[in-house]
Design a protein around this nucleic acid. Structure first.
Lengths: 208, 208
DNA sequence: GACAAGCATGAATACTGGTTCATGTTCGCG
DNA sequence: CGCGAACATGAACCAGTATTCATGCTTGTC
């Protein structure tokens, strides 16, 4: 029961075991990618570790070298997804001066992203049940971005003086709903049409 | 392999076994109610038949007198939920002449319903994975109601001439998002405040 | 008051699937 | 080389749980 002094009880709360070589890095990535495909298509509960590892081309035990539990890959997936989406959006609105135009570009980029990654969409939804904390963090960060933009626009007198937090949730709801229609309900409406209609609604709805 | 002629292959697609006496009726209802509570709080996959039946105060085997599978109670729950919500909304907007006022009343009723039934909200969300067909039907019927109202208002010249289907999805998204904020994110904003802000957004957004 | 259909029981079944482990294999470095 | 740390294997373990089943109870009816 002896051990070096100056050590806490927990081994520094590392997420899974970080690989130390390029080889391990590659394997870990292969597993995450496989998990994305398998969980995305079958859902979390129907996706077994066996499915994931065989899709990744490794043995079942290998999974546990990199992840402590099944839940852990999932959480990481959700995090990754949030990062990707935020990156895509900031990329798409980079350098656009007019705030309303930026809004439009963001909406368009969001719908495109969702359409290109239908699996990712479902994964985030399922996080509400598998990892509620990750789910909340995902939407919180999304809505925060929205809110900051709105507040700035309000200060510039371009947006009506309503509670920016509530407004942000409402606007996010529009994007999300149209995205869901695309992915879950498989409608064929061109994205540009959705963007135009939603943009008019939003622009008229929030102008001062 | 002989059987009476004039019979299809399927035994009339009865959902579960309908009880024939008041006693059975009561037991069946007790199980559904228990399922609502247990699945609502633990989620579908963590809610075992054992949990549900013990919550209902019956033996495990009793469950299978009334439902063929675990999925079946769940589907019935989702259906029931859709019915309840639609009833509540039509109740709340009954007899309101002005369409915009009706919209406001509907929004208020929706948020109140969601707040009073947080479990039900999560159950519908989970249906996307457990019974996608039920999930789609739920939202389809919701959005259809919305669309019909919008089209009527457009014909009366009260609403802008945008695609009513898209508009309906967007507006539904606003309600849903604010409802989710209430239930999943546990914010304490008074419903009336949400209604006012959202109403202004919607009213300005869709006026011709 | 006995018969049968409906209802109820809960132990046994059957199987899935997450996790562990004892045993290799790879590979960079001295 | 050859040593050790990192990585990989896949068979076995085991806990949980949906579903079945043989048996027993209730209740209304003739």
């Amino acid at each position: 029961m002896n051990r070096p002094a100056g050590n806490g009880d927990e081994p520094r709360k590392v997420i899974g075991n970080q690989p130390k070589t390029a080889r391990g890095e590659a394997t870990r990535k292969a597993i995450i990618d496989a998990a994305e495909r398998v969980i995305g298509s079958k859902g979390y509960y129907d996706a077994s570790i066996g499915h994931i590892t065989s899709e990744a081309g490794v043995a079942q035990g290998t999974f546990y070298i990199y992840f402590k539990t099944k839940e852990e890959v999932f959480s990481e997936l959700v995090l990754e997804m949030g990062r990707m989406l935020r990156f895509t959006l900031s990329e798409a609105t980079q350098g656009i001066e007019d705030r309303l135009e930026a809004e439009k570009a963001g909406l368009r980029a969001f719908l495109k992203f969702v359409k290109d990654h239908p699996d990712l969409y479902r994964i985030v939804q399922e996080a509400l049940f598998v990892d509620p904390e990750a789910y909340r963090a995902y939407y919180r960060s999304f809505v925060d971005g929205y809110r900051v933009g709105l507040v700035a626009a309000q200060e510039a007198g371009q947006v009506v003086e309503e509670d920016a937090e509530i407004l942000a949730w409402a606007l996010m709801g529009i994007s999300r709903s149209l995205g869901e229609r695309l992915v879950i309900f498989g409608t064929e409406t061109p994205i540009e049409e959705l963007v135009t209609t939603a943009y008019n609604l939003i622009a008229n709805g929030i102008k001062p």
